[in-house]
Amino acid sequence: MDDKKNLSLEEKLKQGLQQMDQQLDTEEPPLLYFETLVREERKAWHQRLWKELMLLWTAALLMITGLALSFYFVPALFIIIQVTAAAVLLGYVWKEKREMVMINK
């Protein structure tokens, strides 16, 4: 019923947009432009990935250093961090498992 009602409007819309497609004047750049874009974007993307990886390693290194220091100088803090991390991890696993069970039901 709804489809029938829309039919002529759909056709009008399609034809209007087809006309527009023909009228829109897009200047397509030469192949060299795309080759340069691909090369430069790939390079920039790899640099960005390396940067993020470096940041991740730095953060990990800092955390391990902090943990090592706390193990030797403030053992209580070390234990608190370990227990908290284990609790968070267990909580996360439990939540994921519960959601999975709910989806499979």
Binding site: D21, L24, T26, E28, P29, L31, F34, E35, L37, V38, R39, R42
Partner: peptide
Amino acid sequence: EESLARILKEHYSFVMKYVW
């Protein structure tokens, strides 16, 4: 990279007109 550049060139006007 050359193949990717060629494909992107082929689809450029299509994407441009869609967004326009």
